[in-house]
Amino acid sequence: MTQMVPIDTIPDEAVERLLDRAFGCDRHARTAYRLRAGTWAIPGLSFALVEGDALLGSIQCWPVQFDGDDGTVWPLVLIGPVAIVPERQQEGLGRRLMEAALAAATGGPPLTLIGDPEYYGRFFGFDAAATGSWRLPGPVERHRLLARGVNVPAIPGVLGPRRHATAAA
């Protein structure tokens, strides 16, 4: 039976092996990794799916912030990576993880992610309407920089790590 558990109950090495399998060993060069540099995943928003002793998938959420060019600062939550072992993809496991993270994030800061706009828009209400003038610490396909939530900043500014975040978000 597949069970959802807090990710902090899973050894870090097991999560890293899963991420390598799902995204490749070169994944650390991606812009999303720069966005979460120096931070820790938010425990209450990060989950794993296990079946017996097997780790099937994980989702991690990270504290980031948007520094507007006008001097305003918004705390945000970066969702991802969402990883599923290759042999169990297309079974709805990623969707279960995403739904758990979104439910846990209700009432918190706006959410952002880098991902497929058709999928994350259709199923979870993310879009790129507010993110067109955001700058990131690396390359990104503009249409894949998505956000959702109340008060998503729709002004020019920089998205980056939020190093002084609490464990809650």
Rank of each mutant, 00 (worst) to 15 (best):
T2A: 03
Q3M: 03
M4K: 06
P6M: 02
D8S: 04
T9E: 13
T9N: 02
D12M: 00
A14D: 13
A14M: 03
V15E: 13
L19S: 03
D20T: 06
D20Q: 05
A22T: 03
A22P: 05
G24E: 07
R27I: 07
H28C: 00
H28A: 13
R30G: 04
R34G: 15
L35M: 14
L35A: 12
T39W: 07
P43G: 07
P43C: 08
G44T: 02
G44I: 03
L45D: 01
A48H: 00
L49C: 00
E51Y: 00
G52Q: 02
A54I: 01
A54F: 00
L55K: 11
L56H: 10
G57N: 05
S58Y: 04
P63R: 05
F66G: 08
F66N: 09
F66S: 11
D67L: 14
D70F: 05
T72W: 07
V73P: 05
W74E: 14
L76G: 11
L76R: 12
I79L: 15
I84K: 10
P86K: 14
P86H: 12
R88D: 14
Q89E: 15
Q90G: 12
G94Q: 11
R96P: 04
M98N: 11
M98R: 12
A100Q: 15
A104E: 09
A104W: 06
A105T: 12
T106E: 15
G108K: 14
P109M: 06
T112F: 02
I114D: 09
I114P: 08
Y120F: 14
G121K: 11
R122P: 00
F124N: 06
G125H: 04
S133I: 00
S133T: 14
W134E: 09
R135F: 04
G138K: 05
V140C: 13
R142E: 04
H143G: 01
L145N: 03
L145T: 05
A147E: 04
R148G: 01
V150F: 04
N151D: 15
V152R: 05
I155D: 02
V158T: 10
V158Q: 11
L159P: 03
G160I: 01
A167K: 06
